[in-house]
């Protein structure tokens, strides 16, 4: 393998039903930073069907070029057609870096690609940087978030990594940016299409996206039960705007809150302007999902709770008393 042949930063752009997933814009932002430090280009790889109209948006978010693999076979995600399409593009174009969103789709596609290309894949990176000798430094949590590791893929290309939604920040949309859009056709080996998708069902769980919230009122064991969460919901309603209620894992496991609202290692990564942690002790797995929030307030009865180590403002007290008072003050504002 001649490593010097491989250059540019490629982003796999995930669309569902023709809608570009936010994680793609976040990856384009990070790809832009990486490409700028390498003095290389950002290329968005967009598989789908009748999706060319999205190319300009990808350019506005940081791509220099867009490769549209437009084919009926790529309308909905399925492992084999997507692997063949992305593999073909990588083999032809030889990118130095490939970034993939760590969604259920990206985590299905990424490892399949890495095995077909016989290269490394680093999962769920939280930090990506270029080293002095132009290698990709991929940092990710391990041991349930207890340890961080920086990974290198020195002798193989492309250097591939997946990144969870909400971890990177997209750049401001810049409509004045220009770039080249190219439509390519894929030569499929359809004899390998062996997985039949019978139906795709959407459930209510996609209706809320806590990663989009500006303010999160988050409850843990100290909130106790459904009634306790009603107090948090009342506060969220009184604050209004993009305010949502989220939860620690404990309350999801207890069945009080739905998984879509879970913050942490096995839930969502969030970075709102305000994270109000109510009765959350602050296990490392929870901190991993919220410590990048701009301002963190913790309310907890236990003054030794680890959440206070991460909070900008810590209140030792009873959430059931303080939250209704805050709701009153917001309502009366």
């Amino acid at each position: 393998m001649n490593i010097s042949e491989y250059k540019d930063v490629y982003v796999f752009v995930e669309q569902r039903e023709g809608k570009i997933q936010n994680v793609a814009f976040e990856l384009l932002g990070k790809a832009r930073d990486l490409a700028d430090s390498l003095n290389e280009k950002v290329v968005a790889v967009l598989p789908g069907y009748n999706i060319e109209n999205h190319a300009n948006e990808l350019i506005a978010y940081g791509a220099d070029a867009v490769i549209c693999a437009d084919d009926k076979e790529l309308e909905h995600y399925n492992t084999e057609p997507y692997t063949q399409a992305v593999c073909q593009i990588i083999n032809q174009r030889k990118p130095g870096i490939v970034l993939i969103g760590a969604t259920t789709t990206g985590r299905d596609l990424g490892p399949r690609l890495s095995a077909r290309l016989a290269t490394g894949l680093t999962a769920d990176c939280t930090k990506l940087e270029i080293s002095e000798n132009r290698e990709l430094l991929m940092t990710r949590p391990a041991f349930g978030g207890n340890l961080m590791a920086t990974i290198l893929c020195s002798a193989h290309r492309p250097q591939m990594s997946t990144v969870r939604p909400g971890v990177m920040r997209s750049h401001e949309k810049d409509e004045s940016r220009t770039g080249k859009t190219e439509k390519i056709s894929i030569n499929f080996d359809k004899s390998k299409f062996r997985v039949r998708i019978i139906k795709t069902v959407k459930e209510k769980k996609d209706m809320i996206d806590i990663t989009e919230a500006k303010i999160l009122i988050s409850g843990g064991r100290g909130v106790g039960n459904e009634k306790g969460f009603d107090e948090l919901r009342a506060l969220a309603a009184a604050i209004g705007g993009k305010t949502e209620v989220s939860s620690s894992r404990a309350m999801v496991d207890a069945g009080v809150m739905e998984h879509a609202r879970q913050v942490g290692q096995t839930g969502k990564t969030v970075r709102p302007s305000l994270y109000l942690a109510c009765g959350i002790s602050g296990a490392i797995q929870h901190l991993a999902g919220m410590e990048e929030s701009e301002f963190i307030i913790a309310i907890n009865k236990d003054k030794y709770a680890p959440i206070f180590q991460t909070a900008d403002l810590g209140i030792v007290g009873d959430v059931h008393k303080i939250i209704p008072l805050l709701t009153e003050r917001f309502a009366g504002k």
Binding site: A149, C153, E291, Q309, L313, I315, G317, L325, R329
Partner: peptide, 30 residues
């Protein structure tokens, strides 16, 4: 193909301000 270049713990962030006051005062501080 991948190697661990280095491993480290997150380190300890400096804690912010803490208050142990009654609920009314706490709401005011917030």
């Amino acid at each position: 193909p991948t190697r661990v270049h280095k491993a480290f713990t997150r380190g300890v962030k400096a804690a912010g301000e803490m208050f142990e006051v009654d609920a009314e005062e706490a709401a005011g501080i917030i």
